[in-house]
Amino acid sequence: MKTFRIIQCVAAGIGLLMAVSLADSMSATGKEIDASVMLLVLSGIVLFGVFGNKGRKEAAK
């Protein structure tokens, strides 16, 4: 499970970087901004799930 958690954190980090790079363009279209917002939200959900499960497992011990 630790390996899966690491993979999730890396994937969420890549999603956050992609969201920033999409929205950072000077001539970003509406679809690019929408895509960056969706990547940001999905990456946030993944990170929240990873850290939420970690805290819940530690509390159960």
Score class of each variant (00 low, 15 high):
Lys2Arg: 11
Gly13Asp: 00
Phe48Pro: 00
Ser27Cys: 06
Ala11Phe: 04
Lys57Tyr: 05
Ile45Trp: 14
Ile7Ser: 08
Ser36Pro: 03
Leu47Phe: 12
Lys57Ser: 04
Lys54Asp: 10
Thr29Ile: 02
Ala19Ser: 13
Val46Pro: 09
Arg5Asp: 10
Leu40Val: 13
Thr29Asn: 02
Leu39Phe: 06
Met1Cys: 08
Cys9Glu: 05
Leu17Asn: 03
Leu39Tyr: 00
Arg56His: 02
Ile14Lys: 04
Leu16Trp: 07
Gly30Gln: 00
Met1Asp: 13
Phe51Pro: 00
Ala59Lys: 08
Arg5Ala: 14
Ala59Arg: 03
Ala11Tyr: 00
Val46Gln: 06
Asp24Ser: 12
Gly15Asp: 09
Glu32Cys: 06
Gln8Met: 07
Glu32Thr: 07
Val50Tyr: 08
Gly52Gln: 06
Ile45Asn: 15
Phe48Arg: 01
Ser43Pro: 11
Ala60Met: 13
Leu22Ser: 05
Ile14His: 01
Gly55Glu: 01
Glu58Leu: 05
Ile33Asn: 09
Ser27Glu: 11
Val10Gln: 02
Met18Gln: 01
Ala12Gly: 03
Thr29His: 07
Ala23Ile: 13
Leu22Gln: 12
Ser21Lys: 09
Val20Tyr: 07
Arg56Tyr: 10
Asp34Phe: 15
Ile6Val: 09
Lys54Thr: 07
Val20Gln: 06
Asp24Arg: 14
Ala59Pro: 02
Cys9Thr: 08
Arg56Phe: 10
Met38Arg: 13
Gly44Trp: 15
Leu39Ser: 05
Gly13Thr: 00
Ala28Gln: 06
Met26Thr: 06
Lys61Ile: 02
Met18Leu: 09
Ala60Asp: 11
Ile14Leu: 14
Phe48Tyr: 08
Ile45Val: 15
Ile33His: 08
Gly30Ile: 02
Val46Lys: 09
Val46Ala: 11
Ala35Trp: 13
Cys9Gln: 12
Phe51Thr: 08
Arg56Asp: 03
Lys31Cys: 03
Gly55Cys: 09
Ser21Cys: 05
Arg5His: 10
Val37Trp: 06
Phe51Gln: 05
Val20Ile: 15
Ala12His: 05
Gly52Thr: 05
Gln8His: 02
Gln8Trp: 08
Val41Lys: 14
Ser21His: 11
Ala23Leu: 07
Ala23His: 02
Leu42Trp: 13
Leu17Arg: 00
Thr29Lys: 08
Asp24Gln: 10
Val20Phe: 09
Thr3Leu: 08
Val41Gln: 13
Phe48Ser: 10
Glu32Lys: 06
Met38Tyr: 12
Val50Gly: 07
Asn53Met: 12
Lys57Cys: 03
Val41Ile: 15
Thr29Gly: 15
Ser43Asn: 12
Gly13Phe: 00
Leu17Glu: 01
Ile6Asp: 01
Ser25Tyr: 09
Ala28Pro: 07
Val37Gln: 13
Met18Arg: 02
Val46Met: 15
Thr3Asn: 15
Phe51His: 05
Met38Phe: 09
Leu16Gly: 05
Val37Cys: 02
Asn53Tyr: 07
Leu16Lys: 01
Ala35Phe: 15
Met18Pro: 00
Gly55Gln: 03
Gly44His: 14
Arg5Leu: 11
Cys9Ile: 12
Ala28Arg: 09
Val20Cys: 09
Ile45Gly: 14
Gly52Ile: 00
Ile45Ala: 13
